[in-house]
Computed example of a mutant assay.
Amino acid sequence: MGTPDPSTLPYCTVCGSPRLVERYLGHRRCEACGSTRWRNPLPVAEAVLVRDGRVLLVQRGAVEHGAGKWVVPGGFIGLGETPPEAAMREAGEEAQVAVRVGGLAAAPRWLATKDGRGHVLLSFVATTDDEPAPGEDTMDIRWCAPDEVPWDALAFPTTEALLRGLVARSPDARRFPDDALDIATAEVVSGRARRPRPRFCARCSGILALLSVGGWRCTRCDTWHYENPRPTAGVLALRDGHVLLGKRRPGTAGGGLWAVPSGHAEPGETLEETGTRELFEETGVRAAAERLAGLFWDSEHFEAVYTGPALDTEPAADHRPEFTDLKWFDRASMPPAELMHHSAPHVTAWLVRQGLVR
């Protein structure tokens, strides 16, 4: 359920105007209504179902990519649904099961694509009481122990990376684990303005009709248009038991509150690269995204937060476009939750529990 590449289509989907101006990296701004057509990586949600040490794989049918190959149930996240909701929907469509979704089964992964945007994959632990059966676009299903996986017939390198990563963290290499990663996860309100929904076809400017979650079809030329939540990422720099937070500028989402330095992923960029770049742009501090600390979402965005040791001792004075103040906090000086924005209260509490902030 990916969006047609916006850099190749002539019309604004919000107002139908052809007055689109190239900004950077393929993003395009409409001079008529001011909306921006972002060209971010596309998000995918997967349901990792494990029963008695075996993982459920589905064989893809007549689809554009990976036909006849094996994957875990999953697909694109539509605008208006959260990543866990997308994982539940995809499991129902591909394996005809109702699932309960838990935490992340693996850290987010990135898949390169020909258009240069890339896909970001979020894999959730899931359970079901139903017996799976092939869905409309699925040829077959199979429960597989590690030595039963058709390793040479997996659809994507990210599927292999997921399964091998699960085996690597299992206490028994003959079984897939059914537990989630020990990270912070939560649905949170971003505070950002709601994105305008598309009304006009980007190919012919015809009227769009909403037909599925995040999916619109043109009533004139039948072109499908998909809108997806935008992936964001941040890095929390650590130094001597302290964590660096920024106070948001007034007039912005979360203005006056302490927050994680973060921002939207650019085309071709992994979430780790996004977080590292955003940290430096907003604070002047360098830190590698060494460890996943949390994943947070609503129906329009999701944010992966990483941690890593600071490579610079102090924030740079000229690197504060998003913040009015930057400060290192230890456990005793940490702001109360009501003075923190979005993911910050959840992920800083996790840092304290892990002993990374003291």
Results as ranks from 00 to 15, higher is better:
R19I: 06
L244Y: 04
A87L: 11
S190P: 07
P171N: 07
E148F: 14
G78S: 07
R220C: 03
V99H: 00
V149K: 01
E322T: 11
D178Y: 02
L236Q: 04
E272F: 02
A153H: 13
L244A: 08
V352R: 01
R100F: 06
R220A: 13
H319P: 00
P267A: 13
G34M: 10
E278W: 15
A289L: 06
R192Q: 12
T113K: 00
S7F: 01
V305S: 02
G268L: 08
G215A: 15
A287N: 02
F296E: 00
R175E: 15
D52R: 13
G206M: 06
L339Y: 09
V99K: 01
R89Q: 09
G215P: 00
P335R: 00
L154C: 02
P134N: 02
E227P: 03
S343C: 15
L121Q: 03
I77D: 00
G215R: 15
L211R: 13
T185P: 00
A233W: 00
L181T: 06
G78L: 04
E148P: 14
P108T: 08
P41S: 11
T270W: 02
P150D: 09
A32R: 04
G66S: 09
L210P: 01
R174I: 03
V44W: 04
E300N: 06
V243C: 09
G68V: 08
L163S: 03
P196E: 09
P41T: 12
T276C: 06
V99I: 12
C144V: 11
F156R: 10
L210D: 08
R220H: 10
A209Y: 08
A87R: 02
L154M: 05
T324Y: 07
G118W: 06
G241V: 06
F76D: 01
A126I: 05
A112D: 14
L9D: 03
Q96S: 14
A310G: 03
V125A: 07
P132D: 08
G66E: 00
R37W: 12
P108L: 06
F76L: 12
A62E: 14
C144P: 05
Y11W: 15
R109T: 14
E303L: 15
D312F: 01
R89C: 07
E93R: 14
P10N: 13
S212T: 10
V58C: 07
G234T: 08
G92K: 05
L238A: 05
P267L: 10
V58Q: 02
P84S: 04
P83K: 05
L163R: 01
V71D: 11
G34S: 12
R197W: 04
T128Y: 01
